[in-house]
Design a protein around this nucleic acid. Sequence first.
DNA 1: ATGAAAGCGCTAACAG
DNA 2: CTGTTAGCGCTTTCAT
Lengths: 334, 334
Amino acid sequence: MSKISDIAKEAGISVATVSRVINGTATVSPETAARVQAAIAKFNYQPNVWGRRLRQQASRMILVFVPNIRNPYYASIVTGIEETARKLGYGTTLCITNDDKTRESEFKDLLQNGHADGAIFLYIDKQNTEIPKLAKTFPIVQCCEYCQDDSVPHVSIDNFGAAKQVVNYLISTGHKTIGFVGSQNHYISSEERLNGYKSALIEAGIKVEESLIAFADVDYNFKSGIRAARELIDQVKSPTALFCISDVLALGAIRAVEESGRSVPQDISIVGFDDVEYASMFKPMLTTVSQPGYSLGKSSADMLIKKIKNEMTDSSTFLPHKFILRDSTAIFKA
Amino acid sequence: MSKISDIAKEAGISVATVSRVINGTATVSPETAARVQAAIAKFNYQPNVWGRRLRQQASRMILVFVPNIRNPYYASIVTGIEETARKLGYGTTLCITNDDKTRESEFKDLLQNGHADGAIFLYIDKQNTEIPKLAKTFPIVQCCEYCQDDSVPHVSIDNFGAAKQVVNYLISTGHKTIGFVGSQNHYISSEERLNGYKSALIEAGIKVEESLIAFADVDYNFKSGIRAARELIDQVKSPTALFCISDVLALGAIRAVEESGRSVPQDISIVGFDDVEYASMFKPMLTTVSQPGYSLGKSSADMLIKKIKNEMTDSSTFLPHKFILRDSTAIFKA
DNA sequence: ATGAAAGCGCTAACAG
DNA sequence: CTGTTAGCGCTTTCAT
């Protein structure tokens, strides 16, 4: 492992000039620069990060808070963040919290420690008050989910618009009794999707009925999707279409419909959300909304690093989603 | 951000002693230690990592090379590694390579740089020769997949034994014409599972027939699973059971069987491998083998950090798998 | 049991 | 355009 003084000696100059060449912080004569480059190449020199960071008091690390990465939806966001950050010279530390508050605060210590220069949060409850506080001291960006306090910037899709688009589509294909399967969590996305659902109905002159709205468990699990869907389709006035706020819940809904002796999409249309990999491995293939996971990650990282460098100009961003029409929806037949 | 000299001043002693208290590197009088602890608590002091690492010439970081984390199977391994490493005082940098050789070597530079003290690899081809070379210079552990050169330790399940157990089960339930759906990759796991399949047949006195063995694409994708299974079941002498080396391939096989007008498990039994989350969301729920992802990660991290500290005693480890009997297999009826 | 001081590798302020 | 030098925060001899 060569160090800067080895390069200086080899090039016959001082370490300061070598540093200048490496960092481009001052003009160096072309000949000197060339000699330095040659020496660097010869020794395959790379500056020691610890020395540099100690000196600059910057970690060039960002934290990514994620509840788990088993969910492929988080996985692509994280990939987008990691690749982008590295391109910009930042490392990434994944804070996989598994909903463990202790682990979460251990990770937050990394910010206090100077271990990291900023953080991206992927699962902030809408009522969260801790993040705005933390954001006063450290650069923070929220991705996908965000709190109502709009002092902390976020990157996400337009959940309200996406939900509205889904329900408008169902209405346009003749459905009038449309159910909604949500989740009992406190994510803004769940709320916005419910609002979008309601808004589409109202604009179409269809009354919003609480009996057509059901909620699955906080963690969107398959079984609770079955349960919630069953509540809706077992009623006398069964919906002819169901909008579910996640694909797993939609797959649960399909199961519920099939178990009730009806079929998808002939009797009941089902729409999911997320476009998980296996959404197209099921039969029928799921109509759903896909989120640009990688881009969401990329934008978040770009935004955070701008904030860290104090180059921040723009605030919250909304990225486009895609409505994906597959086989779990059909035109309504009376 | 307080520093060690602040603590020293507060406690009325030298920085050296503070350091000794923090690191337990020498005996310090109880009274002094108590004063130091009090000062640390008062200032909520945490040693600066860059100063410490610069001094100790150790990064306390490990690298985890993973092709992607969209695959939930990798996700749980990574979680196991991360949690274990952090408990032992090590950070983790995910090297998500997406099969990009450039990115891969960028990440390997992090080892040369002193950015990381060691690495865990999750997807080594069995013929790989680069890893044994790299392992001469840096602490390295392989997880799940490994190269034939046994100079580099690994942690994995017994793929041969697991495959044998699956096929023995099928044989014990009356099946005699058993097919195998593998992959054209060069992973040792694929090879071992094929060997286990063959060995079980041979021990049962059943001839191994090449016409009952088919291969899906390198990336185990769903469509190629359908294709490979179709090759086997479209034959005059169709197998009555299929052992697939991954769940996604098994789900493809189920689709192929259904599309051929037969059903699973009544006509053909199907077994997968991995126990992905959605294996039990399909109908029929998949009989499969589950790997202890989290434990595989944990053991790899433990082993690597031992190697880094030169405490390495044990070599390669095999962890127990679990055969999970669900609904995609049935007793053979002639 | 404790303190003084060197120095890990680097950058930046200052001087020329 | 370049060199000298201080010092980032910490650990670790070497003294005492």
